[in-house]
């Protein structure tokens, strides 16, 4: 076999290989588009004003999904109340205050672990600490607290990363003008990092909004004939409702199932889109 022939063979193998990689990439990406288009097509017919604004009827086989929508909104907001201040402050600590020592490494390891703990284990933890030990009962409050801790690592990491991307020269200059660490953070680095921080917050809350396992035993209700009146009430929520109607309610009309999935998808992907928009806009505007 002479050399040109050999390299022609090699060429063919490589072209084949690259096409194989193309195919693999398509296999990864196409289902995503497929899923979204499919749910849109199957779910849209279910969407109506009544569907979004009425209580379920006939054992949830008719009527709307208002309590699930409201519940998910409550849970998302409740999660934000706890996780945003705590997560942003912790991100500030890591980016602006912490020195590189053993304690800081321990914090980082803790965050990595929080990020990896299975969501159902968060559910157990929430049940043990919030529902039973602190006697909050199965409630929006207990579920929000559970979701908050699950969301923390996302918010902390993105906040830290956003702060770290702010040029150090600003910190040095602010300090040289008599700025304390907090003043420098509050007036310069945090505002500059804000788009990144907000993006991280939204991505964290997006995850919380779509989670089922952590709220299963901490705040989710199978069915409630009325809207929750206080943070101490249990609540319906879109993700749990989808689980319920697709596994535990015989004779559930498919259209309602797809419609509910569509509503959750719009909720979650809408947040995702918002995060992307904020990030891109900030990138385009940045002066440094």
């Amino acid at each position: 076999m002479n050399l040109p022939e050999y390299s022609r063979k090699m060429r063919q193998v490589e072209v084949l290989g690259i096409n194989l990689l193309r195919l693999i990439t398509l296999l990864t990406a196409v289902p995503v588009i497929g899923i979204i288009v499919f749910i849109l097509i199957r779910g849209l017919p279910a969407i109506s004003w009544e569907f979004l604004t009425q209580m379920p009827r006939d054992g949830m086989r008719a009527g709307g999904i208002l309590p699930a929508i409201i519940g998910t909104v409550y849970l998302t907001l409740g999660t934000a109340i706890f996780s945003v201040p705590l997560g942003v402050a912790a991100g500030i600590y890591l980016a602006e205050y912490a020195s590189d020592n053993a304690t800081t490494r321990l914090i980082r390891i803790a965050i990595i672990n929080l990020a990896g703990i299975p969501s159902v284990v968060y559910g157990l933890f929430g049940l043990g600490l919030f529902v039973l030990f602190l006697r909050l009962g199965t409630s929006i409050l207990a579920a929000s607290l559970t979701l908050s801790i699950m969301t923390l690592p996302v918010i902390i990491s993105t906040t830290e990363e956003a702060l770290r991307s702010v040029p150090n020269a600003f910190r040095v200059v602010s300090t040289s003008l008599g700025g304390t660490r907090w003043q420098t953070t509050w007036r310069i680095t945090l505002p500059q990092a804000m788009p990144g921080v907000i993006t991280g917050i939204i991505l964290g809350l997006e995850r919380a909004a779509g989670e089922t396992a952590p709220i299963l035993f901490t705040g989710a209700a199978f069915f409630l004939p009325r809207l929750p009146a206080s943070p101490m009430d249990a609540t319906m929520a879109l993700p749990y409702h989808i689980f319920v109607i697709s596994t535990s309610v015989p004779g559930m009309p498919l259209q309602i199932q797809y419609g509910t999935v569509l509503v959750l998808l719009v909720f979650v992907l809408g947040m995702n889109l918002l995060a992307t928009l904020i990030r891109n806009r900030a990138r385009a505007r940045r002066q440094w």
């Binding site: 990864t28 990406a29 289902p31 995503v32 899923i35 979204i36 749910i39 991505l203 997006e206 995850r207 909004a209 779509g210 989670e211 089922t212 993700p239 749990y240 989808i242 689980f243 697709s246 199932q257 999935v261 959750l264 998808l265 979650v268 992907l269 995702n272 992307t276």
Partner: peptide
């Protein structure tokens, strides 16, 4: 692919 990461697992289960 980021969107895939954002899909709630209950939706995929469904």
């Amino acid at each position: 692919i980021e969107v895939l990461a954002g899909l709630p697992s209950v939706v995929l289960g469904f």
